[in-house]
């Protein structure tokens, strides 16, 4: 049956990247997350504000590890995070007492709207989910969650990506801005 045959796959996995590529991916990710983590721990410790959220780890994979991917471009990074954050906060505010409903609704809607706006960025799904299940500290931020940690954090990571990804001759970032 064709339906089950499709589950076997049709092609093979892309090749392994070079050691240099792995090293540059490591360095970019280290510096990018470091920048955000430092702000989080040195300046915001003890305040109500947070800077480091889980979805930035996923963004790091893309913008330092798969820099040619459309999913990793600035439009997608910033657009995907900001749009998903707005959706996540809104959905939480609509169903604050039903996280089992708000969680899937936020993620699914984020994906659809990122598609519609050509800003698909997988970590956006996590950003929307965190707005719902991130706990009291996140909930207390309200729509400011969209500005910080989400917007500001993504912007800092983008700056690091621009600085680091363009150092080696074999790398160039971004592929496009808009």
């Amino acid at each position: 049956m064709k339906y089950f045959r499709k589950m076997r796959g049709t092609t093979k996995s892309p090749p392994r990247v070079s050691l240099a590529e792995m090293a540059w991916s490591w360095l970019g990710a280290f510096l990018g997350i470091l920048a955000v983590a430092l702000i989080n721990d040195k300046f915001l410790d003890g305040t109500a504000q947070v800077m480091l959220i889980g979805s930035f780890g996923a963004s790091a994979v893309l913008i330092y590890g798969a820099i040619k991917s459309p999913l990793a471009q600035p439009r997608n990074l910033l657009g995907g995070h900001v749009i998903s954050a707005i959706i996540g906060v809104s959905v939480y505010k609509l169903f604050p007492g039903a996280l089992w409903l708000a969680a899937p609704l936020a993620v699914a809607t984020a994906i659809a709207v990122m598609h519609a706006t050509r800003t698909l960025h997988p970590p956006g799904g996590a950003t929307a989910l965190i707005a719902v299940i991130g706990g009291t500290k996140i909930h207390a931020l309200g729509y400011f969650y969209v500005v910080a940690p989400v917007g500001l954090g993504a912007a800092i990571m983008l700056a690091v990506a621009l600085l680091v990804n363009n150092i080696p001759k074999t790398r160039s970032y971004p592929e496009y801005w808009v």
Binding site: T11, P14, P15, E21, A66, K68, P70, T170, R171
Partner: peptide, 24 residues
């Protein structure tokens, strides 16, 4: 062939976010 594409992808530095099948 998938092998041609695989070889070409290896020549391009960096991770290409596409499978040989899609490229074909």
């Amino acid at each position: 062939s998938d092998e041609d594409i695989f070889a070409a992808m290896k020549e391009i530095p960096g991770y290409l976010d596409i499978t040989p099948g899609d490229f074909k």
